[in-house]
Nucleic acid binder design. Structure first.
Lengths: 390, 390
DNA sequence: ATTGTTTGTTTAAACACTAAACAAACCTTG
DNA sequence: CAAGGTTTGTTTAGTGTTTAAACAAACAAT
């Protein structure tokens, strides 16, 4: 049980001062005192400690408001760096970010194997590479975050990654042993949700559902500004939500799962049956987009149909969570121009009028997952210092 | 912004001491100190204040453990009383509870009208009646909680109650003006979830979904020990989750809504088509249960089918939330003996094996909503004193 | 009767915050 | 340009809460 003492008070206030600087820099001590309600003396003392911690710094005097000139403070986003990795089914995207989530270096490689040992070796090489290029800083690399296309448990062990054919792999421990740096492993949709929430289309939105529509469909749930992982870490498997009780059988054991109708895989399977595409083999999403751009009506109609099914699932999400926003990301967000109208229409038509949910496309593009993963690592780094009271 | 100071420290620790006593009474000061990590002196001082606040008391000396005999403390559950009301479509159930949620007095009346003025008058009479019978106590009636069959917004105003044909009714303000006592108005399913969570089948379960299956289906979402109401207060409308994309049209505007297949209304409509019941008119749920008990196979099969549909929705819930438990309450929980197996079977068959969710029936029976509503009022009363740190 | 243990209070010290006073730096104005 | 007012950030004295340690009271064991 966490009791209250003077140490806690200091932690709380130090955390408030740091957060205020992060959000409102450039800012002076006086302004911090005014905004937070903390006494000027308190602010001064905490600022001094934060400077000693290298987390903030002084730039010099600012503009006077009719009296002594203030000393301007800034958040030292280069006090350390985080590594964020999007481990896809056929690629790995790794980024090095500063403490504000700005990409400093990025690196992408193709994945031609899903063999556990090979993938881990590639991961380690990538990390070592980024590490070698990391600028000098007080804290160095403060953590590594990895988003994986599979289900993790409460210990961040990978329970099951269908498209990699992985089961029970403890990537976290393995990498922590290799690098002696804190590692956090999360589901790809959860990482994407976190990324969009902090840096993208979900900024300042307290309750949102991120729909990661790729080969399958996963979702990340943000509730009261925090990611909800479920009792055992496997929430958000809404790709396997039944939207047609008597529909196609899914390999998950269920029938009529959403992702059988609204995922990239569903799209490609349907596309293969289109008369106008019979000449092609090995069709990719990019090919279909080209076809649509060239005016192929069949493909456009198919896109619209996929949009409708996306919308049907999102209506369920809206009725379930009453979120502020639903954000569509991952591969299918490339179909923005075709599925947007269909989704909006389904939401309009099938939803109670008072369920006023906003629909958006992700704004971080291919970086949602990698940036979210890096953000997880940064969060963990700051967790020691960050305290909130309710 | 909530800053830290000595006042906060005291609030936190006082809250911890009170909570410890509520949970572990009878308990001594020394044991509290040991359990919480607070110093003995601190505990003594806070206990003295709580006694002055009438929230706890001393019973006398307990058994010695080889030294001085401890003074035993208890939580004063009679420091005040709460009123909890379940406003149904054709009944009102009102209870007076102590601060531990024990029913002291209960009162039920039939509702033959849904006219706003009439209903509010009946409510006021009921409340006045309970108030008059409330035992003397330091705080008197500390709050009134009401569960309503409809959707409320963030101000606890009733947006829409379909079965009462109510729209935009501010019951809360009206009753607060009448009685000068804090009133809290909540959706019936949310209140039921809260009740089961605190006093019933959901005790000590951090993440649970309460499925209130009555004429329609509503759900209450408990996440990390707290009720989640959504961005605008209308989460949990899972009765209108599509489980058959091409299914029957619902008056909500959507197609194939869960409650069209798995609610009491759906059940009664299906029952009316059964050959063996053609002689009957105006069939009620109770009649069907009697039929089933008398061995009517058609009815038993129908019950089973309803159970299957309940299960299908619950699979969606489990995949979405990964909760510790799903609890079925309200009218259809009377079908325990018939739907239980069907639900368990669907969960077994359609769910990923690692989504290990527990299915339960509600344990508070008809009291879920009334007790949950009373609990909301009690929570509000203690909110001033209760502080937690993360 | 003695010894050691347990309980709860008293005492003195530590510590973080605050209000108020203060010094420094700056702007405005006549 | 000198005087007065304003803003910033530090210093100082004081408040209030927790804590460790000492203490007194009550009790069991021997």
């Amino acid at each position: 049980m966490k009791t209250g003492d003077l140490n806690l008070v200091k932690k709380i206030n130090k955390s408030i001062v740091l957060t205020t600087i992060q959000k409102h820099a450039p800012i002076s001590r006086a302004e911090i005192s005014e905004q937070t309600g903390l006494n000027k003396a308190t602010v001064s003392s905490l600022v001094a400690e934060l400077i000693k911690d290298h987390l903030i710094g002084e730039t010099g005097p600012g503009k006077s408001k009719g009296g002594r000139r203030p000393v301007i403070l800034y958040f030292n986003q280069n006090a350390g760096y985080a590594i964020g990795i999007d481990l896809g089914v056929n690629y790995i995207l790794a980024v090095l970010t500063d403490l504000n989530g700005h990409v400093v270096i990025e690196k992408q490689i193709e994945l031609t194997t899903s063999e556990e040992k090979d993938v881990i070796q590639l991961l380690e090489e990538l990390i070592a590479d980024l590490k070698a290029q990391t600028p000098d800083s007080p804290y160095g690399i403060i953590g590594i975050g990895i988003g994986v296309p599979g289900i993790t448990d409460n210990t961040e062990s990978i329970l099951y990654a269908p498209h990699l054919s992985w089961q029970h792999i403890d990537l976290k421990t393995e990498l922590e042993n290799s690098f002696q740096i804190p590692v956090t492993v999360n589901n790809e949709a959860n990482a994407g949700a976190h990324g969009e929430k902090l840096y993208g289309a979900g900024k300042d939105i307290a309750n949102l559902i991120y729909v990661s529509a790729g080969i399958g469909i996963g979702t990340g749930i943000v509730i009261n500004d925090e990611l909800f992982k479920g009792a055992f870490g496997s929430s958000g498997e809404m790709g396997h939500m039944t939207i047609d009780a008597n529909g196609k059988l899914c390999r998950c054991g269920n029938c009529g799962c959403w992702e059988l109708y609204a995922s990239e895989k569903a799209l490609l399977e349907e596309a293969a049956t289109l008369p106008s595409l019979q000449s092609k083999t090995d069709i990719h999403l990019e090919d279909l987009i080209q076809q649509a751009n060239e005016g192929n009506h069949e493909v456009c109609e198919l896109f619209y149909k996929i949009g409708e099914y996306l919308g049907i699932g999102m209506v369920n999400i809206a009725n379930t969570f009453n979120p502020n926003a639903i954000i569509l990301g991952n591969r299918l967000s490339m179909l923005k121009n075709w599925v947007g109208a269909a989704i909006e229409q389904e939401l309009e038509q099938r939803l109670f009028p008072f369920q006023n949910v906003t629909f958006k496309f992700s704004s971080l593009g291919v970086y949602s997952c990698a940036l979210g993963s890096a953000a997880f690592a940064i969060d963990k780094f700051f967790a020691k210092n960050r305290v909130t009271v309710e």
